[in-house]
Amino acid sequence: MYYISQYIQLQAGTVLFNGNPFFQSEHSEFKGFAKELYQKLELQYPKFYKMDNLCKLAFLASEIILQGNQESDVALLFSNQEASLGSDLQHQAHIQDPEQYYPSPAVFVYTLPNISIGEVSIRHQFKSESMFLLADAYPSTYLLPYTQYLLASGKAKKVLCGWFRMQDDNYEACCYLVEKEGPIAHETQTIE
């Protein structure tokens, strides 16, 4: 049996960490919320401002849940429904008009959802197992056994699982860390 040691939810300007209020933003729209939370965390990571919104969401959630983490062998299993739709649409807008065809390299690099895994891995210097799944709803029936497998086989010491929805100002992050010890059993009813 494995356990959930930490979990976090970010939604509509509110952050709940392990079920307790952690942060309440004055802004419900994502841009203001993300900047305010970044400043509250007192981070010095200018690259944050260059990330797309999906990466910012995954970055902030991971930053909080991995506070104090010393383990580098942390697998990242992220998922969502929209992939990188926000950046995809932004990129499309840049190339829509043949007379004004100026694709932005800084936007284009975020037109894949698994870049969010890369951003978190760079930040925490993880060289671990990772996967980004697309699904209509949180794919617990797949992620539960896969998480158990990664831990049981020794391919990871901890697994960070996350569901990151990002479309315009509708955003939601649900994230939890699975390891050998923790207060909550890692089973279907606790991750859905």
């Binding site: 200018p46 260059k50 100026y102 694709p103 932005s104 390299p105 800084a106 690099v109």
Partner: peptide, 17 residues
Amino acid sequence: LGLDSIDALELIVLLDK
């Protein structure tokens, strides 16, 4: 300013645009 390779590409687009 600590710019990186993606920033360099973005500056090339800026000059063009």
